[in-house]
């Protein structure tokens, strides 16, 4: 754990010192603000609907932010030749992955937290429960965590950041659009595909303030699976 925190600390410092980290954070807040203004503050709506719409937009932005932040974590280090420092240090591959994951998750959490003023604006002219807000943010963080793990896996298998971005985007798109595929398939396949989809069926309850354990378990499982795959990919590269 000590080594993972050491790696995480360096990564957080790196995000802070890089233009990319700030640019991603600023762009995410800008898009979320525009989305909230366009879809939440226009016309007369129920407060709960405004909040749900905000979380809908924020969840999409968070997925993209997660993949963008994951790209340099391994593929970027490989391109710059710095991954060898970690590979030849007495730390385990799982600690490298865990450290980088924690750092990126912290950054996603920070960007997500910075958007909290938008839901709070609803209290000016409306009323929503704090539980609804908390559940929505929990869903976004869980979704961000899963998207980050997917991005880390593609970053681990890619030799370049461009390749990692393409693969990450594709895999994320497939995971998100599985529910569309489910619509044109027969039972029981459609049920399985719909259940596996990253956003549609799993995220909607969070947006409406409903926190279901099965959805939490789903996101944790996706995160664990792709982080494990990233760790095994790092280990396997030594055998090449």
């Amino acid at each position: 754990m000590r080594n993972a925190l050491l790696v995480a600390g360096r990564e957080i410092g790196s995000y802070g010192r890089s233009l990319l980290g700030w640019a991603i954070g600023a762009a995410a807040l800008l898009v979320e603000g525009l989305w909230f203004s366009a879809n939440g503050l226009s016309g007369s709506r129920m407060s709960a609907d405004v909040l749900r719409e905000f979380f809908n937009g924020a969840s999409g932005v968070t997925m993209i932010v997660a993949v963008l932040m994951s790209i340099p974590l391994l593929a970027g280090e490989r391109e710059r030749g710095t991954l060898v420092l970690l590979n030849t240090a007495p730390i385990r591959d799982v600690e490298i992955i865990a450290g980088k994951y924690l750092a990126a998750l912290a950054m996603i959490g920070l960007v997500t937290l910075a958007s909290v003023y938008m839901p709070l604006l609803i209290f000016v002219n409306g009323k929503v429960s704090l539980g609804h807000v908390a559940a929505g943010y929990a869903g976004i963080l869980l979704l961000g965590s899963a998207a980050l793990a997917i991005g880390m896996f593609t970053s681990a298998v890619s030799r370049s950041q461009v390749m990692a971005a393409i693969l990450g985007g594709l895999l994320l798109a497939v995971m998100v659009t599985l529910w569309l595929v489910a619509k044109v398939t027969e039972p029981p396949v459609n049920g399985v595909l719909s259940g596996m989809a990253l956003h549609h069926q799993r995220q909607f309850p969070f947006m409406t303030g409903v926190l279901k354990l099965e959805n939490v378990v789903y996101y944790v499982a996706v995160t664990y699976f792709f982080l494990l795959a990233a760790t095994k990919t790092l280990e396997a590269r030594r055998w090449r």
Partner: peptide, 13 residues
């Protein structure tokens, strides 16, 4: 202690 042919340096540090 290992030094690869391209030193593994973080330029921003």
């Amino acid at each position: 202690g290992y030094l690869p042919d391209t030193p593994p340096l973080y330029g921003e540090m």
